[in-house]
């Protein structure tokens, strides 16, 4: 199955860039994956995903209710309800993908969106806030495990299976060197 991982965000707007930074970490840990970082919005996202079977999007969100670094796991259906008017230019992801499908493009059948609760997306700076920055490796790990993206999966190891599918008897943890 052809999989693409899209990290979405603005790399110079503080936590807005968290999707891009997580995508970079995922690529570092498993260079075989197809990972794309993008600052594109709306319809431009369609350019990246045509021809893939499975799409994993990593983006930021600011619900204001969650704890910074919370990971929300969304399906396209979760975003469908926001397919209303767009007062600003950005067409949302759900509309974009439905549009591509409606026009007969080969858009991914499997779509998963991970949204990270962030603190600040209005200050220009290249780094994320420290609250987000220190969680990036962990979040990347959690998403990789959830989506079975670890390099070790290609060897069929049970180590990186999603939590609920893991064998009951865990292997002994190795001592850190």
């Amino acid at each position: 199955m052809k999989t693409i991982i899209l990290g979405i965000g603005n790399p110079i707007l503080s936590d807005d860039g968290v999707g891009i930074k997580i995508a970079q970490q995922i690529k570092e840990r498993n260079p075989d994956l197809k990972v794309v970082e993008t600052g594109g919005v709306g319809i431009n996202l369609l350019d990246h995903v045509i021809g893939y079977d499975r799409l994993i999007i990593i983006d930021s969100i600011k619900t204001g209710d969650g704890t910074i670094g919370d990971i929300y796991k969304l399906d396209l259906d979760d975003l469908d309800a926001s397919m209303d008017l767009t007062p600003s230019h950005g067409m949302n992801i759900a509309t974009t993908l439905r549009l591509g499908h409606g026009l007969g493009y080969d858009t991914p059948a499997q779509i998963r969106i991970y949204a990270i609760e962030i603190l600040d997306n209005t200050t220009f700076r290249e780094s994320c806030t420290k609250e987000i920055e220190r969680q990036i490796p962990t979040i990347a790990g959690k998403i990789m495990r959830e989506e079975q993206l670890c390099a070790i999966h290609t060897l069929g190891s049970p180590l990186c299976q999603p939590l609920q599918n893991r064998p009951v008897s865990k292997p002994k943890p190795r001592r850190a060197r």
Binding site: I8, G9, N10, L13, D16, G19, G39, V41, G42, D59, S60, I61, K62, L79, S82, L85, T86, P87, S88, H89, G90, M91, N92, I93, A94, I113, A115, I118, N121, T122
Partner: peptide
């Protein structure tokens, strides 16, 4: 909607640098 129509005609670029979900600014 009538207010939004006024707003949209200008195609204003408020907050267009952010890419956080859901990818559009609500009013």
């Amino acid at each position: 909607n009538m207010i939004e129509m006024a707003f949209r005609a200008y195609d204003p670029c408020h907050a267009c640098a952010t890419h956080s979900l859901p990818g559009r600014m609500a009013l």
